[in-house]
Each structure stands twice: as structure tokens, then as C-alpha cells.
């Protein structure tokens, strides 16, 4: 029997949807194994269609994007009710992703910058988005922008996670195959990814790490063969799940951690910080700190994709 699936996006960029499309001719196999009942980027279904479904009607909901506003949360809860299996698709649904970096600021900071201060905005009346407003005699409403980005798991029960920003297309395809073949592992598992650190599949040569200086990418040309971290470039491979195919590394670009933490790691950023501290050459605290101080943007470096899921989580005031 064909699977019934719904694909949705919260605070996302659409890259996960494109990763599904990037399965190319395998998309035809996906179409053979599943009927799609919601997919805003590609098909014309409305929320009213989803509300009209019986509970549990969908076999699977694939939810990409974080939960940034009340609409994202409402649809996440709606899909949770309508789907037997809820899958967090991609780094934003799993960890908040890049949009989760907004958690460094308050809602008010963001609204002010975007609608009042940005160089490309003309807004002499100082108009800000309102949850409800009256325009030309008509009542209009907008979702409530939350104070912080939440992960999908922070608002609904999530059965499985397909990590990545974006998830590698073939990994999505193989994860859908697990569903179609009824081969899903135990609830809560990460699917469509490896179970080792990215370092284990990285093609670069690894030796003893003794870091004395941290480099920004424009400060030194990395050699072609050696581990980025050994050369002093921050690379999150050691704290990141494998499964991406080392695509950034192969493009001469150090990892920023989009595949998220391994199992049993509570905080990817802290894991990376711990790993980094252990390979600093100086051994005196003062000298270690002098090296670590060269990381110019630690929050957004170590938590590039995971801030909303991290212990730092969000700015409070």
C-alpha cells in the first residue's frame, strides 16, 4: 500500500524541500512509494485540507524548519495529530538551525532592526507587524512572532530525525525507504545519517593536534591534505554526526556542524569546545585562554546550527 505523506516547513528556507527534489530520477520512485497530501513548495494543498483529515490519516509528516511563530506551532501540532509518524527533517527542525541564531537577540531587537533600522527599509510611520489589525475596515491577523526559535521537539513529540542543512538527498531517499519497507529503528532515532563523528569519514589526514594559534580562513591557505583543525582552522567535524558525505570539507571548507550532535551528546557546542580545549598546545590556563580568545565569535561558531537546542538556548532579556 502506498504511504500517505505530508511535507511542511516552519521557519525554514526551503532547502530541505529542494533536497527532496534533488533526488532527481529517484523522485519517481518516491512518487511510486508515497502519495503526497501536503507540500506547500510544490503542490496546492491548503491548511483546510489538513484540518479535514481524520487523525492519523497520514503515515508520515516530514517537518522542516524551526518553530518561530504561533502558526508554525499550530501546524506542527496539527500534523502531529494527523500523522502516525512525525519526522524532523533537517537542522532547523532538529536544532533550530541557522534561523535559531536569532535567539541571540530578543523579539524586540529583531523587529526594530528589520522594520525600523534596516538600510533598505522606508517606514516613516514606524509600523510594526501586529497580531491583529484593522485595515480599510477589515480585520486582519498575523501569527505571533515568538521571543525565540524553538526546535520541533520542543513543541511536539518527534518520532525520528533526519539531520543536515540540508539533508543529503540520497539520505532522505534512504530514510523514506526505511519507512516504506517498515524497517524504522526504535522511536527517537536519527535516520538518514551515520552514527560516527564526521572526522571518521573525513578524507583529510589526521595526526597529533597541537594548536598554538587559531586562524580565520582568509589568514592562511590551508594545505590540501591535513585536518583543518590541526592547521588551526575551527572545524566542527569532531562534534558532528557523519552522513553528509564531507561535502564542505571536500570544498576546502571546515565543518560548521549542520548534521548535529551524535547520540548521547547533550550539547554539540560544548562538545566542540571541550574537544578544542583538549588539543591546545599550551598547558597553562592563561596560555590556553590566550589561544581560545582567538575564536572571535564563539556562540555562532560552536552553535551555528544548534543554538535553539543548546544549553545557551536563548537570550532572556
Amino acid at each position: 500500500m502506498k504511504l500517505k505523506i505530508g511535507i511542511y516547513w516552519g521557519a525554514a528556507c526551503g532547502g530541505c524541500d529542494v533536497a527532496i527534489l534533488d533526488t532527481h530520477e529517484k523522485l519517481l520512485e518516491i512518487a511510486d512509494m508515497a502519495d503526497i497530501y501536503l507540500w506547500p513548495v510544490a503542490m496546492d494543498f491548503k491548511y483546510s485540507d489538513v484540518r479535514a483529515m481524520k487523525d492519523g490519516f497520514l503515515d508520515v509528516a516530514l517537518f522542516s524548519g524551526g518553530v518561530r511563530n504561533s502558526e508554525n506551532e499550530e501546524i506542527a501540532k496539527l500534523l502531529r495529530k494527523k500523522a502516525k509518524v512525525m519526522i524532523a527533517l533537517g537542522a532547523c527542525a532538529q536544532l533550530g538551525g541557522v534561523p535559531g541564531l536569532a535567539n541571540m537577540y530578543t523579539r524586540e531587537d529583531i523587529l526594530k532592526r528589520v522594520y525600523l533600522e534596516s538600510e533598505s527599509t522606508t517606514n516613516p510611520g514606524g509600523v510594526l507587524p501586529l497580531e491583529s489589525a484593522r485595515a480599510d475596515g477589515h480585520d486582519l491577523d498575523l501569527p505571533r512572532l515568538y521571543n525565540a526559535v524553538k526546535t520541533l521537539e520542543q513543541v511536539v513529540d518527534v518520532d525520528y530525525t533526519i539531520p543536515g542543512c540540508p539533508p543529503a538527498s540520497l539520505q532522505i531517499y534512504s530514510a523514506l525507504g526505511l519507512i516504506a519497507d517498515d524497517m524504522l529503528p526504535k522511536k527517537g532515532s536519527v535516520i538518514g545519517a551515520g552514527d560516527r563523528a564526521l572526522c571518521d569519514e573525513c578524507p583529510r589526514k589526521k595526526g597529533e593536534k597541537t594548536i598554538t594559534k587559531i586562524y580565520r580562513t582568509h589568514e592562511k591557505l590551508p594545505d590540501a591534505e591535513t585536518c583543518f583543525l590541526e592547521q588551526g582552522f575551527i572545524c566542527l567535524g569532531v562534534a558532528t554526526r557523519s552522513g553528509c558525505g564531507s561535502r564542505c570539507i571536500k570544498s576546502w571548507t571546515p565543518c560548521r556542524g549542520c548534521y548535529g550532535p551524535l547520540d548521547d551528546v547533550a550539547d554539540q557546542g560544548i562538545k566542540m569546545l571541550t574537544a578544542l580545549a583538549s588539543v591546545i598546545e599550551p598547558k597553562e590556563e592563561k596560555d590556553i585562554n590566550a589561544v581560545l580568545d582567538q575564536v572571535i565569535d564563539p556562540v555562532r561558531t560552536f552553535n551555528r546550527f544548534g543554538l535553539a537546542a543548546s544549553m545557551l538556548r536563548r537570550r532572556r532579556t
Binding site: 511563530n69 502558526e71 536569532a102 537577540y105 529583531i110 532592526r113
Partner: peptide, 18 residues
Amino acid sequence: IPELRGFEKFVEGLPIEE
């Protein structure tokens, strides 16, 4: 347009190469 993520704010202070 019911969405806003706020890139305008959270790229402030980000190292340019990132």
C-alpha cells in the same frame, strides 16, 4: 506574509567570512 526570521539582525557582528 506571516513569517519573519530576522537575518538582518543575527548576521550583525558575524565574521565576514562566515
